[in-house]
Computed example of a mutant assay.
Amino acid sequence: MPVRVVESSAPSQISEQDTSPGHTLPPPCTLLSVGRAFAGTQNVSSMQKDEAWMVNVRIQGCDLDYGYLCGTMEALNVPLADTPVVTFWEGEIVDTKNYTFYTGKWEATPEDDIRHWSKFPSFDSLLSQVEADGGKSMDLSNYPFIFMRWKEQYFVNVGIDCGLTIAGFYYVCFSCSDGSINGFYYDPNSSPFQKLELKSTNEGRSGFSFSSYQLQ
């Protein structure tokens, strides 16, 4: 069932009856489902040089009841790697029940959270409520964007000496209307605000392919 996009982009407040165990979570989106693939770039530029990696992402699992999803990410042109680097990541969907906008781990403070979420224009109307309570009192079930955190867990096909770090995580904003993904990587020891930009791909007609990997 696709996400219903409403005319207003402002979130509604959760009433007392909505906070019951049957409170509606963000409904499934056909563009955010198992098997969906995305392609784009991650800008990893630093003060010394401009650099961007080609990136492919595939969703391997999704359980909206628990605010969970997982998948693989493939970086194609990492300078120090002889082969594309594939990682397995797990994600938290900000649904205000299982997860809020405040990360509470991975060395991210509430100030870091606000700073990164505010990079997304679609977050502007949510800012004041998030600053008040992390967004706990909002109902995001009809919001046309889904906010997530993606945390890479391990390297799939290379060793830890591949030239990449997976110590950080991604703040992610997914558009329910076109399946586009924007994200910013957070790691205190890496270049700040590395931007991830992905588009949903139609593998059958665009010619885009994605390698298959056995996940243990």
Rank of each mutant, 00 (worst) to 15 (best):
D133S: 02
W117N: 06
S122A: 14
A108W: 02
T100K: 04
A108T: 08
S118K: 12
D124M: 08
S118P: 09
I114V: 15
S118N: 13
K97I: 06
K105C: 10
K105W: 05
Y99Q: 10
F101W: 03
T100S: 15
W106Q: 09
E92D: 13
V94R: 01
R115I: 00
V94W: 02
Y99P: 13
S125A: 05
Y102Q: 10
D95C: 11
T109F: 07
S122I: 01
E107Q: 12
D112W: 00
W117T: 03
E92P: 01
A132R: 04
F120E: 05
V130T: 05
D112F: 01
S122H: 10
R115G: 09
K105T: 06
K119Q: 12
G91S: 12
Y102N: 11
W117G: 06
V130Y: 08
P121W: 12
D124H: 11
W117H: 06
H116G: 09
Y102E: 06
Y102I: 01
K105Q: 09
T96D: 12
I114D: 09
S125N: 06
G91L: 04
I93D: 15
F120D: 01
E111Y: 03
N98F: 01
I93V: 15
A132D: 09
R115H: 10
D112P: 00
A108H: 11
F120I: 03
D112L: 00
V94Y: 04
P121E: 11
V130E: 08
A132K: 04
N98G: 13
K119R: 14
D133L: 00
